[in-house]
Design a protein around this nucleic acid. Structure first.
Lengths: 255, 255
DNA sequence: CGGTCCATTGAGCTTAGTCAAAGAGCGTGG
DNA sequence: CCACGCTCTTTGACTAAGCTCAATGGACCG
């Protein structure tokens, strides 16, 4: 299968960062050029590689392609995925060492990352040089906090079925920003074990829940691709609100 | 009973803000005076009052006494408490409207709050006037993010028993910063329903879990006061790490 | 004294977890 | 080309954590 071709064409990979950041602020020509220069130096990592180790001083990066996650391990091996990092997402960029080092960032698929040290120094040294980038990164951080609140609600007060649907809606929404949703399809390159660790469920239960959702005609899930069949039903099931992602709130909060 | 006397003596109430902020940064005499002036104007609210409504433009405040929480409601009435706000905690201070308006802030007890608009303007206008306060507030925000990660791990991967112990350790640790832990006792002025909504459990199960913890000799819980009896056992049960609160990480991240 | 709010208890049920085994898909090497 | 091993998905049977419903008891208050 070649469903990943699109995501691995270099120009479109770069688009992930571009789309993500320009979704949050209007970027000047100079800023776009800066990002372009930045993304010349990419590095690849295999699945399971720790991009940031828990307790280590973090290196600022931006994810170009592939999926990663922030995660925490309990003493006996239980894992909780705090959040997913999708193409275009910065990772420990302009974060205090304290926050970044508090949980590990791990590649879930093969990932391409950009070293963003230059961006970080440019922004901390003089915040007026790239005002658009500064704003975009700040809003990105806010988005992050909102998603974390959603995660808490999911884990605390939603059933397995609702959790799964809600997470899929979140991923669809976020992938849409970086143009990775085509029609009602989007890539989903993770195993059911990973979904289990994100949703606080067992692998077996994730499997059965997904089957139920498919049987109810809400979506298809084959070959690493999700196809939404009944968006309205999914939104009703998951108690989804458009502001759940914070897009509208973000825009209104800027002006 | 008069176990709340201490917390209602004005000078000690003020100490909450003082303790909280000076735990994160060394404050100058001018900064201390600024806080003192700020806390002249206090306002009281009853339990269940919404300090910030979901979707409204938030007013920057600091909690002087009493407990509050950030919460989100689902369409059918289910409630999830995102985080507890304790004395000394700022509430939508220097937060983007987007984040603050995404969930409601509700008083859990009678609360005294300080309007912190003046602090916010002072910090945004010129960040060099009160460098200590600016740093303290920034670190406070970081602390918040770390606690949210802890909450995700609790809800996602810990049992009811572990969750409860872990939350109690978190509260003890946070109350310690504002000098509200005396020996191994601290105030716990919330109902079991509130604990349930914070921990993603039912009221009944919270009740049984607390009983089990008491029976196991880890703590006592009477008259709105918790007494820790076996801290080591609690830390072992909850997989507690000293950096869980981020205190150490915070300090190391500053220098 | 009745009312209200909260804690507690019991019984039965449901959701989700565990254990174990069987397919399915894929890459590799013979 | 096929067999093997690996990883991931799927299924069944059973278990257990936690929920719901319903009732009781205790404390406080007007």
């Amino acid at each position: 299968m070649s469903q990943h071709d699109l995501r691995h064409r270099p120009d479109l990979r770069f688009n992930a960062i571009l789309h993500r950041l320009s979704a949050f602020a209007t970027l000047s020509v100079a800023e776009l050029q800066f990002l372009r220069d930045l993304s010349r130096q990419t590095r690849q990592h295999d699945p399971r590689v720790e991009l940031c180790q828990e307790g280590r001083v973090p290196v600022p990066r931006i994810l170009l392609s592939g999926w990663a996650c922030r995660q925490r391990m309990l003493g006996d091996g239980r894992r909780q995925i705090i959040s997913f990092l999708l193409p275009g997402d910065p990772c420990s960029l302009l974060e205090r060492p304290a926050v970044a080092s508090h949980c590990a960032v791990v590649a879930l698929t093969t990932v391409t990352v950009v070293e963003a040290k230059a961006l970080e120094t440019a922004l901390t040294a003089n915040s007026t040089v790239y005002p658009g980038l500064a704003l975009a990164i700040r809003l990105q951080t806010i988005q992050d906090a909102l998603l974390l609140q959603d995660q808490v609600v999911r884990l605390g007060r939603q059933t397995a079925y609702e959790r799964m649907v809600h997470l899929l809606l979140e991923l669809r929404s976020r992938l849409g920003i970086v143009q990775m949703v085509e029609g009602n399809m989007f890539p989903m390159p993770v195993t059911q074990e990973i979904l289990a660790d994100a949703l606080g469920l067992s692998i077996v239960h994730v499997n059965r829940t997904l089957q139920q959702i498919r049987r109810d005609g809400m979506l298809e899930f084959r070959g690493g691709q999700v196809t939404i069949l009944d968006l309205a039903m999914m939104e009703a099931v998951a108690d989804w609100t458009p502001t759940s992602l914070g897009e509208q709130a973000l825009r209104s909060g800027v002006g």
